[in-house]
Structures are given as structure tokens and as C-alpha cells.
Amino acid sequence: MRKPRWWAELALIAVVYAAYSGGRILVKGGEASAVEHGLAILRFEEGLGIDAEHPLNRLFTSVPALGIPADFAYASLHYLVTPAILVWLFRRRPAHYRAARAWLMTATLLGLVGFTLFPTCPPRLLDAAHGFSDTMAHFSAYGWWGGEASAPRGLGGMTNQYAAMPSLHVGWALWCGVMLWRYGRTPLAKALGVAYPLVTALVVMGTANHYLLDAVAGVAVMGAGPLLAPYVLRLVDRLRETAEASPVVSAGCETSAGERIPGQRSVRTTADDKQEWGLPCSSEAESLGKAR
């Protein structure tokens, strides 16, 4: 298997992320249905007594020493840690990079399907009567974000605030944690691999950006990633092999007796060469070659 080229990988990741970000914007669902879905999740959690986002949000709102760092973590780590882990794998664990990258991208696209089929209003955008406080807006004076999620001030319209189910903050953090646990060689790396997804789950609920079930769905999507990634890799390999094995007229092969491609030099080509490259040499041209 060829070693991936860094510039090709960078371009691929940029294209996939642009498609993901653009897809989030394009699949914006109606506010009414998103609110209905959010309330349905909240009622279901309250019925089971697992609405952990309520006490966490009250804690993060009342204690700035927790709420402000959590807002910074929500607004930045998602976009910093994941690329850093990809670069680390590319440089230090190249044998595992391709499968890990396919896993991450497959799960991300599954998340986009979730945003499309089930637009969900996050807790912070529900009516205040439901007991949630938007910590991002509450502590916005301390960061670069405004009152519209983690987007920089004035760019809130460039995001889909109803893409809460599943939580890819949690999903990506879980992927990072698995990579650190599996391929990290120090106790610190493995400890970070455990702590990072757990802290991320607390952050997304404490800041009222996600419900507990959003986090669970993020874990489920990331869990489906490694099951589907091998099929994605096989499909990509098959497409690449098909492209590389497409018929090419070259190396002195004649399309018919006495006819050559203009400017093509005559080069003797063995049968093994023809078989390896799939050259479309006619039997008539081969017989002429033997006569010479």
C-alpha cells in the first residue's frame, strides 16, 4: 500500500470538512420541528430520570470558573485536537493512519445524515421556562463567540444551530480518545484518551449545547464508523484500481496494421509488460512484430 502524501491528505480532509460544514448549513430544518424534537428528547430523559444536562447547566452557569473554561473548550478543542491527532497518526503511526482516517470520516458523514433526518433544537435555545441557560451567551464577553453557539460574532448565520443530534463533539472526542489509548505509548497519553471524551460529554451538556441522548448518539455514530470504514476503503481501492487499469494506448502498440499514434516512438514491449499495464495490442500487431 502506498504511503499517503501529506498534501493529498490535507486536500482530502479539507474537502470532506468543507462538505460537512456546508452540509450542516444546507440541511437546516424548520425551527418548529427542531424544537419539537428537542422537547421530545427532553421529556423522554425526564421520564427516565436521566436528564443530567439540567444540574450540569445550573452548575456551569452559577460557577464562572467552570462555565468559562467549558465555553472555551466547546468552541475550540473540537477543531484543534482532532486535526492534531490526525497529524500525529500520519507522522508517528503511518501504518494505522489510513484506517483511522476512514473511520473518522465515515462517522462524520453518518452524523450529517442524522442532522438531515432529525433536526434538533439544543437545550440552550429552548424557552427559558424549561430551565436552561445559554452559557455561551452568558459568558460571551470572555470569548470570541456571540450569542449563536461557538461561531464568531456576526457569523452565526453561517452555522446550523439545530444540528444537535448526534453530538459530533462527543463523537470526535471519543475517536481521539481511542486513538490515544490504542497507539499512545505513555500512561499520560492513555489517561488523556480516557479523560478527553468524558470531559467533552460534560462540557456539551453543561453548556446546554446537547442533551445526554445527543452524546449517546454521538458515541453510537462513532461506534458504527469502524464497522463501515472497511467497506468504504475497499470501494475507494476498487475505484483507484479501475482508474489505474483503464486501457491506455502506448509503448508502440498499434491500433491496426501500420497505424501508430502520431509522434509515438516505437518501443519493443514484452507480453509481460502488456499484461501488467493492460495495453490493448491487437493480435495482428503482435504477428507483425514476430515477422520483423
Rank of each mutant, 00 (worst) to 15 (best):
G49Y: 12
G49T: 10
A163K: 00
L26Y: 14
F60G: 00
A217M: 14
G154T: 05
L188W: 15
P230T: 11
A243C: 01
A34Q: 10
R93E: 15
L155I: 01
W88C: 07
S140Q: 13
L112D: 01
V232Q: 00
Y211C: 03
C176I: 09
G22S: 09
A99F: 04
R265T: 13
L109D: 00
E46K: 15
D71C: 15
A271T: 15
T82I: 05
G23N: 06
P123K: 11
P226W: 10
L180C: 12
C253R: 00
E46F: 05
A19K: 02
G156A: 05
A84V: 06
S33C: 04
T200C: 10
G154W: 10
L168N: 02
T116I: 06
T61R: 09
A164S: 15
V194I: 15
R265M: 09
S62P: 00
A201N: 03
Y142Q: 13
A75E: 09
T269H: 01
P152F: 06
T61D: 06
G156H: 04
D134L: 08
G154L: 08
C253A: 15
S250N: 10
E286M: 10
G225S: 12
W7I: 07
E244L: 13
I25M: 09
P280S: 11
A141W: 06
R92I: 06
G30K: 09
P94N: 07
H78N: 15
E254D: 10
V249F: 07
I68L: 05
W6I: 14
T106S: 03
S150D: 06
F44R: 14
F72A: 08
P4A: 09
D214N: 15
R238E: 02
F72H: 13
V15K: 04
C121M: 12
P69R: 05
L26K: 12
L42S: 05
S62A: 13
S150Q: 04
F139Q: 01
C176M: 09
E36C: 07
